[in-house]
Amino acid sequence: MSFLKIRDLSVILRGTNHRLLRGVSLDVGATEVMGLVGESGAGKSMIGKAVLGILPRSARIVGGSIELDGVDLLTLPPRQRRHLIGQKAALIPQDPLTALNPARRIGPQISDRLVDILGWDKARARARAEEILHDVHIPQPDRVLRAYPHELSGGMRQRVLIASAFAAEPRLIVADEPTTALDVTVQKQILKLIFEMQARHGTALLFVTHDLGVVSKICQRLTVLYGGLVMEEAEVGAFFEAPRHAYSRALLAATPRHTDPTADLTPVPEAVIAEARRAVAEADQRWHA
């Protein structure tokens, strides 16, 4: 039983006929970790944004459905949709330096959703914020609650954002390249933390990344995107043994391996790109017909 069920989702660039997502279908099970991979511009972040209702103004959903816990978000009135997303889903953003409000203290930024959207009383929400900061291994959580974002390091801020995402016990978390903006030394700790928290809370996780190495370690399934089109969707074990799709094989060959970091990388061959483009063009033809 999938918690997030996307069917045939199409998103266009507003005012044009150009599709950014070309009929994407995707399932994420209730406690599953799904990796979403692809090159820049493949539309992997776009899917996460569509689910959370934060697509930029320039993008418009023109077809398909996004079911969260059995409810189609796209048919709900805006207020109810927002509320449902706020209750059941959360985002771990890409850049911890810009994702916290510089004018507000950390504490309220974690607990505000608990009070305003989930209806907790303030004391309980504050206690929860302190507890969850403790869970993400932040020393002296009571001091951090009173701090402003500029008083914390980048790694600390990402911990705070992870805590904030898990604080309300959401059933689905979208992590949008959560380590890209961090130091390499911090990246590993943050990844470990996200999966520690995911395992403890049994949350469904949609992990958007361009790093197949990370996917191989932490995801159960993955979806490969090219040009807003799903190229392949597979179990991680099977995928890394033998990817079915030519594009997936090429992408894998272009990924550095920790076991042999000096090995030459193969760029995605022209022929494979041409084939992927053909698939995109065919999908567009079917759609416009």
Binding site: I85, L100, R113, D116, I117
Partner: peptide
């Protein structure tokens, strides 16, 4: 357009808020 505003939207807050 800033990230912390977008993050607040995902929490379920209205445009006015």
């Amino acid at each position: 357009h800033l990230d912390y505003v977008t993050l607040a939207r995902t929490k379920g807050y209205s445009e006015n808020h």
